[in-house]
Computed example of a mutant assay.
Amino acid sequence: MHLRALRLTRWRILTLPLLVLLAFSAHADEGDFPDNHLVEPPLSSYAKGPLSAFTAFRFSLSRSVEDEDLSYTLILKNGDQPPSVTLTSFSKTANKIVSQHQMPLTPGQLKNLLKGERMSNFWELPRKSGRTGFDGAIWKMEGISGKRTNTIERWSPLPPYYSFVLDSKTDTLVKDPKTPPGSDFKSSDEVGLDMFSLMIIYLKPGFDGAL
């Protein structure tokens, strides 16, 4: 009887860390922002006229290894208002905004961002897709353009993309046959989304943080 009790005690000791790990894993798989995240007005509240002439995005970057969360509110089309981006820095420890400033978008930036929007297939993408983890970042993007709206969340670091080689027989680009197994799971429409997100992230002057 004593031996059985000892075995049960050992089993409980070994099981407790596993249960804790599974609980944390379940939380990580949710991919949601923590409770002390930045809360901002809905994008539609920025419209100065009818929504049919309004296009805006908000990109949020929450990194597990950084106290600072970043938010980019992009107003690309808003009647006769000039296009702009508002950069907001939020401290998770202090649970408050530590800096916020608005910058105009140049014609070149606006052109590239609108092109990035088209390439990203943003409006057709699901809210969540791909893998999550512990040490990385959550990328969240909200968008509104006329009657279209969408909100998506993705986990970073980005998965590897496979490289291409020229097929001499067909004179076309094909996947490199040396691509390691399991490294080619990134779908083509998500690549466009990643590029669009990176264009937004680097709108912040001097950005050199972890992605």
Rank of each mutant, 00 (worst) to 15 (best):
H27W: 12
A28I: 03
A28G: 08
G31H: 02
G31K: 01
D32N: 12
F33A: 15
P34H: 01
P34E: 04
D35N: 14
D35I: 08
N36R: 10
H37V: 06
H37I: 00
L38Q: 05
L38C: 08
V39I: 10
E40C: 11
E40M: 14
P41C: 03
P41N: 03
P42V: 04
L43A: 01
Y46G: 10
Y46W: 10
A47W: 03
P50E: 10
P50G: 00
L51M: 11
S52Y: 03
A53S: 14
F54H: 00
T55D: 08
F57L: 09
R58Q: 11
R58H: 05
S60V: 15
L61D: 03
L61P: 00
S62D: 11
D67A: 06
E68N: 12
E68L: 13
D69G: 10
D69P: 11
L70G: 01
Y72C: 06
T73L: 05
I75G: 08
G79I: 01
P82D: 13
S84K: 08
S84W: 05
V85S: 02
T86Q: 13
T88H: 00
S89P: 00
K92H: 11
K92R: 10
N95Q: 10
N95A: 09
S99K: 11
P104T: 02
P104E: 13
L105E: 04
P107V: 01
G108N: 14
N112G: 05
N112P: 00
L114C: 11
E117F: 14
E117C: 07
E117D: 13
